[in-house]
């Protein structure tokens, strides 16, 4: 009965933890000192959200939050592959944050209707913080999209890569049918994904980055705007663009990026699993 609920909160927690882990890598190295401080809070927020999701899982499974966060093997993590990708550059990071937080807002809005009290309340709390994150990401996206050509070029490349990979955020959770039956989830992931693509394309359009998506809804191509110079022709250095769209995370299939991240992230915990830290 609760297995499907555990599956959902674990996957949601994993998304937040792994993205928070990546975001935290900017602490000390963001492109502007004030922004360094600002972005670090966002990283901490995401890790805090993960902790809150794991708390629900913990109450259902009896495992501690930390055992859930750091005590599993690589293929037991259920986050979307998008979250584990290296930060690459600031354009990639901001675009990922922007699209992730948009996806998250949609997902949280749906979770605010969940039949599970704790999950419903948590969704309301988190959504407020994600709204703030979105304000942050919106400002950066607008500034870069309307700024000099080099930034716009990087942004377009990042948007191509990231938008395709957001598909991984809307893969069905394990036992999703059960979760819908129980009322833990009210909207199927696939349906949320469809709404997301529509919103994302509109938002990109609003930034002067008109995207054309393929019929399956995920493969994004950006078309030149009337200003003509929107997209520089240089497409080098973006090898990821042709990589698979980042599916498989919800069933524990991750990229080599995650193996490296996992080894780092669980290193101290694994050194002495009996210890308290």
């Amino acid at each position: 009965m609760t297995e499907s609920l555990v599956a959902i909160v674990t996957a949601l927690g994993d998304d937040e933890l792994i993205l928070g882990h990546r975001h935290a890598e900017w602490t000390g190295f963001a492109p502007h000192i004030e922004e360094d401080v600002a972005f670090s809070s966002i990283a901490q927020d995401e890790i805090g959200h993960a902790a809150a999701y794991y708390s629900i899982a913990s109450s259902l499974t009896g495992l501690t939050r930390d055992a859930l966060a750091l005590g599993r093997s690589v293929d037991e993590y259920r986050h979307a592959v998008l979250c584990e990708r290296p930060n690459s550059d600031w354009a990639y990071t901001i675009t990922r944050q922007w699209l992730y937080d948009r996806a998250d807002c949609l997902r949280l809005t749906a979770l605010e209707e969940s039949a599970h009290d704790d999950l419903r309340h948590l969704a309301t709390k988190i959504r407020r913080e994600e709204r703030y994150h979105l304000i942050h990401a919106d400002m950066w996206m607008e500034r870069i999209a309307h700024g000099p050509i080099e930034g716009r070029t990087k942004l377009t490349q990042a948007a191509t890569t990231v938008l395709s990979a957001t598909a991984g955020l809307f893969e069905p959770f394990e036992r999703e049918a059960d979760a819908i039956g129980e009322g833990w989830l009210t909207v199927p992931s696939e349906e949320l994904g469809r709404r997301f693509v529509g919103e994302a394309v509109d938002a990109l359009d609003g930034l002067g980055l008109p995207a054309e998506v393929t019929p399956d809804g995920w493969r994004a191509e950006f078309v030149a705007s009337s200003s003509g110079d929107l997209i520089a022709t240089d497409r080098s250095g973006s090898g990821e663009a042709s990589a698979p769209a980042g599916l498989g995370g919800r069933s524990g299939r991750h990229s080599p990026d995650f193996s490296a991240l996992w080894a780092d992230m669980t290193r101290t915990y694994r050194a002495d699993p009996e210890a308290t830290w």
């Binding site: 805090g48 902790a51 709390k125």
Partner: peptide, 10 residues
């Protein structure tokens, strides 16, 4: 101003 309030435990 509600946005100034952190949601997660800090």
């Amino acid at each position: 101003e509600a946005l100034l309030e952190p949601a997660a435990d800090k």
